[in-house]
Every structure is written in C-alpha cells, then in structure tokens.
Design a protein around this nucleic acid. Sequence first.
RNA 1: CGGGGCGUGGCUCAGCUUGGUAGAGCGCUCGUUUCGGGUGCGAGAGGUCGGGAGUUCAAAUCUCCCCGCCCCGACCA
Length: 578
Amino acid sequence: MRASQLFFPTLREVPAEAELPSHRLLLRAGFIRKLAAGVYSYLPLGYKVLKKIEAIAREETNAAGGQEILMPSLQPVELWQETGRWDVDVLFKLEDRSGRWHGLGMTHEEVVTDIVRRDVRSYKELPLNLYQIQTKFRDEPRPRGGVIRAREFIMLDSYSFDRDDEGLDLSYRKMRRAFSRAFARLGVDFIIVEAESGAIGGKDNQEYMVLAGSGEDMVLRCDQCGYAANAERCEIADRGYEPSDEPGEPLDVADTPGMKTIEQVTGFLKTPPKKLVKTLIYEADGKPIAALVRGDRDLNEAKMSRMLDMDKLEMASPEMIVKLTGAEVGFSGPVGLKNVRIVADYEIRAMANFVTGANKTDAHYLNVNLDRDFRVDGWADIRVASDGDPCPKCAGVMRATRGIEVGHIFKIETKYSKAMDATLLDEDGREKHFIMGCYGLGVSRMLAAVPEANHDKDGMIWPMSVAPFEAVVLLLNPDDEAQLGAAVRVYEELQERGVDVLLDERDERSGVKFKDADLLGIPVQIVVGRLASEGKVEVRLRRDKQGRELVLDEAAREIVSIIETEKRRLLEAADRVS
RNA sequence: CGGGGCGUGGCUCAGCUUGGUAGAGCGCUCGUUUCGGGUGCGAGAGGUCGGGAGUUCAAAUCUCCCCGCCCCGACCA
C-alpha cells in the first residue's frame, strides 16, 4: 500500500473528547471516528487491525473445536421473555411498524439455545461448541474510553453444550486455553481472575484482564500463591483480626448536625475513617438486615447476597430506615438497634472505641465497643477487597492493580437450557437439560486494550501479529532519485516476500513521515534517506528506535528475518500459556 | 439516574462577566522556499456561534426550554 493512496486522517491535536491514551491515539492516528456516544466507525487502519484480531480469535476458537455461525442481531421479544432477560435495562429494545417488539443482541444465549433445542436431540451429537464474531448492542449507562466501553461493539461469543459437568469442565478448559493463546498472540500481558458472573448467571467464571493503570476494574493478586480475582469477587481471609487490647473508653454521644457521610463525620469529629463503623441497612426478601463495615471500606453486595443465600438484596428505603432506627439516613448504628439482624465484616472484630451513628438524627456515638454496647448476629467476609488484604488461599497478602476486562468465560450450566427447556436424550434414555458454557472475547475492545497497554509519548506500538502494517518504508525525499529507487526496491522486494508493508511516498516533509510512522505504531520502520546514495537504508524497530544500517542488497532479507522473529516470539508466548 | 463541565470554521481554543463589525493557532487551497523529526514567507477559501422560544432598536453574549458530548458516581450480561 502506498501512503498517498491510503485514507488515514491523522490529527496533530488531541480531540477534546478523549481521555484515555488509547482513545486519543486511535483518534489521532485515524483508526476510529465517533458517530455518537459509544458508537464508532472503524477507518481503514482500525478495521485492518480489527480483522487481524478477529482472525487470531477465530483461529484459536476453531482449534478448540468451535464451529463458526452467524446469528441475528434482531431478536423477537418472546425469546427474551423465556429467560426473563427482556427486563434487563442494557438491552436495546425497538418496536417495528406493526407493534412487535425486538431486542438487539447483547449476547446470544437465547438464540443459540433455541437453535440447539430445535435440532440437537441426542447425547451422540455432543459436545457442541458454536460461536460467532458479531456486532453486539448494549445500552450502556455510561459509555467511555472510546471503543473500550461502547454501545455497539464487536465480540466473539462462543457457547458450549454438554451432557454433564465433566463435559462442561472439558469444554471450559479448552476455551480457556484458546482465549489464553489468543491473548498471548495479541501481545498483551494478561491474567485470568476469578470474577462475578453478573446476570449471565452460573457459578464458575473467570475474566481475562489486560493489566493497565487506566483499567476500569480493580484486580487483586496474591504475591505468594498467585490467587487473582476481580475486586468485586475477591474473597478475604478471616485472618489477623484479633480483638483489640485497647482499653474500652466510656460510651459517649456527639452532636453531628447534618453530618451524614463518612467524609462529613470524619471531618467534623477529626477522626480517621478507620475509626468509624459504617452501618448499612438492607432489605433482604422483605426483612431488614444491618451490615457493618469499617468506615474506609465498601460493602460487597454480591458477597452479602451469597452469604444470605438470597437473590434479592436491596438498600432499605429512607422511610424504612427512619422506621427502623428512629433516625434519618446517615445516622444509623448498631447500638440499640432492635428487630434487625446485624452482620459484621470480620475486620470489625479488631476495632475498639469506634464511632457509629447513634440512631438519632444529628448524633453519633463515640467509643463504641463490641459486645459491651451491641451484639453481632453473624460474622462474615462482606467487604470489597483492597490492597493489602489477606489472601483467602494462603498466608500471603494481596496486591491491587488495575485491568481492562477483555474476556469473560462462564459455566452457565442449565440456567438457559432450563428456562428454555432445551433438552437432549442421554445414554440412559432420559431427557436432560444441556449443560452450557459461554465464552466472550472483546474483539473491538482489544483494538483499544492493546495500545492502552503498549504505547509511548509518540504513539502506539503494535505487536507484529496485529499491526496495521508489518513494516513501513519512509521515503524521505521522493524527488531524490537514489532515494526513490531504493525505497521502491525495498518496498517491492518486501511485498514479493509476503510482507504487509506501507510505502510512505507522500509529498510531505520528512518530519511528518516520522511523526506519522511513530503515531501509527508500525513495528518496523525502514528509513530511506541520504544513505540511499551509498546504497544503504536504515532499519529500526518502533519499540526502541534503535537503528541499524543495511546495504540495499540485503535489506529485504534482513527485514523479513526481523518480522519472522517477532511473529515467532508471539507464537511461542502462546505455546507457553497453553 | 445523581453531581459537575462543555457545545463558536475540519481540530484545539479565545470572545460571553459589562449586548453593538465573529477572532487566533493548527489544518486546508494556491504560489514560493525547504527536504533526516509536524520548514520559512506570501495570498486565499472556510462559521445558521448545538436547536427553539423569549427580552431588546440590537443577542455568540441575557432568560427559559430542548438536544448533544465529556468527566465523577451509581450501573456494567
């Protein structure tokens, strides 16, 4: 490809809308353009990278036994009603001219289960893994980061069908390996973490995280045993929370007019948040329950509902709180609280002389102590994990890092097959529900995650496997015949050897070409300049820009060798993870 | 959905407080110059000031309503 023919509108200035490095760079390099919030066009270079990402995801899924299909985006309301997911608020819904409602596919459990229940009858046809790479729609409450969290995006979604748990285990392991290999080939550092399944359902599920400081998700990793989990899922060991030996001070009351939040109370009383106990009133299946966590911690609602073994857990209404505690929201506390079950986080056990709401508007208790002033009905791990928490699997300590979720795999078991009554006839002659797994890989999100994890001040740095071009020939002065001849020769020789190469022969200053080449992040740069008159060119990697001179006769061969080495390195990385 | 901010040429932004001729830089076009890190010089094109209503002799500027976009939070299948 010749740069003069290529549509890649690069921007010198950063569009005001972009915050994340990857978003800014994708816009500046002319890879994507926004049409509306969370809705993007992929321009030639962005689309080219996207297709390379897709191809790798497809290859690995095929190798794991997946069969590619393509399901509709437009899906009738009845299908969604079968599983109750019509009420999901991120589902895009639309009405047709005759008043029928449709959902735009966000994931395709319903459709694929419908396909399978119609045409798969026998255990002999299992296991089955069907997948697609397709545009998905989600009415995100808040799109952000360009294509990181979009409302229309491209995902590979795969679904496995087995007759028993052993089969599911095997299918799951195969797909986990396939995705691991794919991400390794995409040249990113990633970790697999335990995760929350959300409303997809099922118990076992794991996420693939690309480590990046700007990631939306907080991930905890044990520095000893390697346990890793999304903070929203991460368990915390009940360890190191011995009762305090601090002598108990007498219980006291402080006036705290209008001080409702932790921040206000700590500021007003000049007490650190660690000395506060937050009391959160919930309603679980109609019954009130009080949850206690340290003032600087967050309650983990998922852990709460799991512990209570209830699906429906809601913050109590302000009216309910007034009725129960006798005080407005913001002044609840465990002392003197009646007819409410009190559940406390393990960590509270190590606290003494702490501050709580006084169950009286505009007042807080000081020097509250366990047992003396109130009783806890149950101890549990109910807070969101954070840096420094004890590992649940070993004696280690967990460290927090940020990550971008680029894949999520689930054992959904019979959640959908039961809801949709999808059954097979097993060997014993009995009807059974399919045991399912589902596996999602964010294709368009990877377009951003790769440069998010791999860029410098000058632009993106693409791995060889998905780079928009493998090499770029910078013809610095097209009017210089020696340079023109050398550049065209290298360009053509590389093409003959199957290299995906760009020739920048634009009538531009050399500075523009260097800047654009860096911005685009093409891994190998071949600079054809003054040295051309001596029959030499300079080759360098975008990564480090360490240049080396090559004589023209050997240039193409050397460059091919560099490219092959890079490709091999990525494939070897894939072999290592699997 | 709650809080905050923004909307003026393709891009980044000034002008708005205190109403009166719509600006700069970059980009773009033409000429010229230069040719290994977004050249120098000259000329030029390009704007319903997000939309609507109102106040006023007069609105980018003041008032109201609506729309869009961004950030923080909630949420995130």
